[in-house]
Each structure stands twice: as C-alpha cells, then as structure tokens.
Amino acid sequence: MLQGVTLRIERGATAIVGPSGAGKSTLLRLLNRLADPDAGDLRFLGQDVRELDVLELRRRACLVPQLPAPLPGTVAANVDFGPRLHGVAADRDRSLALAGLDPSFAERDAQRLSVGEQQRLMLARALALDPEALLLDEPTAALDEAAKAGVERTLQTLERRAGVSTVLVTHDRAQARRLTTCTVELRNGRAAVA
C-alpha cells in the first residue's frame, strides 16, 4: 500500500492527509508496530522501532483508534487499564481532565457513554500512559458536529497541557490546518510535506 515513503515527523502536531485508501491508517499502524513494513525501516527518536521493546514502544507512541473501543466496565477501569499493564499507577483525574471529561465520569459504565464521550475516553485512556506521542486515527470521524468541535478544542491545547506530540490522520484538510502545524500528504503510496 505504501511505497518508497521517506518521512520525518518532528515533535509537535503533524497531520497526515490524503484520499481514502492512500495508506494513512497503515502508516499510523507502522509507527507503533501494530503492523510491520515488508521492507524499509522506521525510527522512533533515532532508534529502529524493531529494536525497541514493542510493548514499551506502544506505551510511548500510543494509538487512539478511529472507532471508540472501550473495554467492558467503568470509565475508571478503562483509564487504569493501560498503566496497570505497565505496572504503574494511573493519574486518572488528570487523564480525564486532559481529555475533557469531568472526574465524575469515573464510575460510569463505559459502554453507556455517547460516542463523543467514548472517543474522549479513548483519549484519556491513551493519555493515562503518559506517552511521548499520540497517534490519532481520524479521531472525529465517528462524531457529530458538536462532539467533533468539542474533541477538536481538546486536541488543540493538548500539546501545551500534556507535553505530548500528536500525529493526526484525517481526510479533512481544514481540520489538519486547525489542529496541526505541519501537514504531510499521502498520495499513491508516496508522501509529500504540504
């Protein structure tokens, strides 16, 4: 799907845009090794991703899926899940606040939240891992306009508040301009900095 892509993503907020099927999501999955390329190499902060511990890489460069996929149980259980895997305590209130959710959400059933709230929960769950980079796969694609605007407001200030770099996959160029400072365009399996 992707061929001869040479790309350097700097710290900060970067958008990856392109038509459907251009390989945007695939590129994101390569970045945290949910998939591996047939050829070529990928580096994270100068180190080949295949030389890093894959579980640790996924904590440091955490992917937020396009469709919310909460685990059964409460919001708190979802937020605590990642840190518990890595043997650390979650700062649950901070993670919820960064994602724009009130701490009172903690005891609510994750499956019963609205789609917009679930997407914020996905964000909180990733932020609870204290990652260096957030990989966002069309995070507003499943949301209505009001929820989309709310999540965008949260993402706009995330870098400043959480000190996390973001790689945003979107097909919406206007959204890319609103949320990021650098845009990479994928077309026919190749990348160009727009």
Binding site: N32, L34, L55, E56, R58, R59, C62, L63, V64, P65, L67, A69, L71, P72, F81, G82, L85, H86, M122, R125, A126, L129
Partner: peptide, 20 residues
C-alpha cells in the same frame, strides 16, 4: 478485532488482549 487492536495499542500482550 477493533477492541483487541485497541488493547494491543495500549501495550497489552496478545494474551492480555485476547482474555475476553
């Protein structure tokens, strides 16, 4: 598969992601 991949993306092992 969506939920399994979302769990893997948080740093879960294959075993942890497929418990359910």
């Amino acid at each position: 598969s969506g939920r399994i991949e979302a769990t893997l993306a948080l740093g879960a092992t294959a075993r942890q992601a497929s418990e359910g």
